[in-house]
């Protein structure tokens, strides 16, 4: 016997066809695909921090966070690092070719909730991609926020992404953009060291700051402890979690992290809500 149920819909496991309207080379191993739905001219809406499942024909599917466009822009941009079979296949695609897409999925950065606060954005490596739409949203209402700080760390200078935009962020919007690399040669005139060393160099009011962090889990652990050292409250720190993901809709069970499903409860979590499990080995 069955109770009352909602009417049937298309399976959330079936991708929709999207057309690649632009391929952008971001760095030696990273590229962006801007895609639009094939069957309708409308751009889909998404919240900063959400991700899509991208399907390369005959190869497979991967979760990729949405990295743009700016508010009012067309399509959805996905910034992808070519590290595996599927991302490699996506890298080979050209303008006007087709990909499968499911989404947008997942939680978003707390933009509205952070009005009136200073914002510290910390990104490690490709972690800047899901934070870029957050920056766009913050800068779209620049006067609603206090200091905006971007602390960005990568392995080597050639891994830096979106650097062309940094000048606009600095100059037009007064964002404190600070970058650092793990190692560099003489050509590099910037900072060398891990990203959390930048925290003490940034100007913000810790008690009145919302921090948004995305990067490798180990980097985030140290970033959180650095922010806590400066007395940013735990419930004002937001982190992103990553786990194996197959379905993105809470069916497959792969992405569980303690009681959370990364796909539908995350990927963005308020730190104090997951800290019980954060850093536990093999959780």
């Amino acid at each position: 016997m069955a109770g009352k149920m909602e009417p049937l819909m298309q399976s959330p496991m079936t991708p929709w066809p999207y057309r690649i309207q632009k391929v952008i080379r971001e760095s030696h191993d990273t590229f962006s695909l801007n895609v639009v739905p094939k069957n309708s001219p409308d751009s889909m809406t998404f919240n900063p921090g959400q991700f899509n499942m991208l399907y390369a024909f005959g190869v497979g599917e991967v979760p990729i966070s949405i990295s743009g466009p700016q508010p009012g822009g067309k399509g959805m941009i996905h910034t992808i690092r070519d590290v595996g079979i599927v991302t490699g296949a996506l890298h080979k695609l050209k303008k006007d070719q087709t990909i499968g897409l499911r989404g947008p999925f997942g939680s978003a950065w707390p933009i509205e909730e952070s009005k009136g606060y200073d914002i510290v954005i910390m990104a490690g490596g490709i972690g800047l991609a899901p934070l870029r739409p957050a920056l766009y949203a913050l800068l779209d209402q620049r006067d609603k926020f206090g200091e905006i700080v971007l602390l960005y760390g990568v392995r080597k200078p050639e891994d830096l992404l979106f650097t062309k935009e940094f000048e606009t962020w600095r100059g037009k919007y007064g964002v404190q953009v600070k970058m650092t690399v793990d190692t560099a040669d003489r050509e590099w005139r910037g900072n060398v060291g891990v990203v959390n060393t930048l925290v003490q160099r940034a100007n913000f009011d810790p008690m009145n700051t919302v921090a948004m962090i995305c990067g490798p889990e180990v980097m985030m652990r140290f970033a959180v402890s650095e922010l806590k050292r400066r007395e940013v409250p735990e419930d004002q720190i937001f982190i992103t979690m990553e786990r194996n993901m197959k379905c993105a809709v809470g069916f497959c069970g792969h992405c569980q992290f303690g009681p959370a499903f990364i796909c539908k409860d995350g990927p963005i979590f308020r730190y104090d809500k997951v800290k019980q499990f954060f850093g536990i080995r093999e959780i």
């Binding site: 399976s11 496991m13 079936t14 991708p15 929709w16 066809p17 024909f57 050209k94 087709t98 499968g100």
Partner: peptide
């Protein structure tokens, strides 16, 4: 879950 047919960078998805 579904099937897809295509060639040359284009394909169509057939829901199950």
């Amino acid at each position: 879950l579904w099937q897809a047919d295509g060639e040359g960078g284009d394909f169509e998805i057939k829901p199950e």
